[in-house]
């Protein structure tokens, strides 16, 4: 049985799909990988592994559908299965603290700091980036997918294998946590608008 008969694409056609549909997303993929692993070499390996898998399973990708979401889903699964154990994440938030937060009423409050627009606008990129990186991976991921990459809730649900309702609640909690981290940072650094 020829390659074309078995998989629908010739090798040449696969190459065209790969180049036109998959490779344009490599910058987003690398940034996502880096935000998950916090290590340039691991991020590089993760992206490479993801693209090799994408090529191997290219026949299951339907042209015209969302290639970026399909690739992100592969990358996320590769990270969980192969990379998470060895990734060099920064100081992790204590697991019990996360659990306590999940189970407390605080998660559904609208805002918990005195953080103001002017204060945030004064911050430089590193402060925003560090606050994002300090979040637990599940919270960090929804903010990356939504705010950095612009995925819609239904796409995020498919990438993460969770219901849309969970995407919404996790995003709400992630944003509250991020505001808390930025507020704490602003207070510590003596930004204006903070006593």
């Amino acid at each position: 049985m020829s390659d074309k008969d078995r998989q629908g694409y010739t090798l040449q056609e696969k190459g065209k799909v790969f180049d036109s549909e998959f490779l344009p997303h490599i910058t987003s993929m690398y940034n996502f990988a880096y935000r998950l692993t916090f290590d340039e070499d691991d991020a590089k390996d993760l992206v490479q592994d993801t693209y090799l898998k994408a090529f191997r399973f290219i026949e299951s990708f339907q042209q015209g559908t969302n290639a970026k979401a399909w690739l992100f889903r592969i990358l996320k699964n590769s990270f969980i299965n192969d990379f998470r154990k060895k990734s060099k994440e920064p100081a992790k938030v204590d697991y019990q603290e996360i659990e306590a937060y999940y189970n407390s009423d605080d998660v559904d409050k609208s805002i918990t700091t005195d953080l103001r627009v002017e204060t945030v606008q004064d911050m430089i990129g590193d402060e925003i980036s560090n606050a994002l990186n300090s979040l637990d991976i599940d919270f960090r991921t929804v903010i990356i997918l939504c705010d950095l990459e612009g995925f819609k809730y239904d796409e995020m649900a498919k990438i993460l294998d969770i219901p849309i309702g969970t995407v919404r609640s996790r995003l709400h909690r992630a944003r509250n946590l991020l505001k808390e981290r930025l507020g704490s940072y602003a207070k510590k650094m003596g930004y204006k608008n903070f006593e």
Binding site: I26, V47, L115, G125, I144, L148
Partner: peptide, 19 residues
């Protein structure tokens, strides 16, 4: 505030160049 943070994340956290 939420909108500002969302914009800042978009503009300042996607800075890694592909090796």
């Amino acid at each position: 505030l939420s909108k500002t943070i969302k914009t800042l994340i978009k503009n300042k956290c996607n800075d890694k160049q592909v090796p």
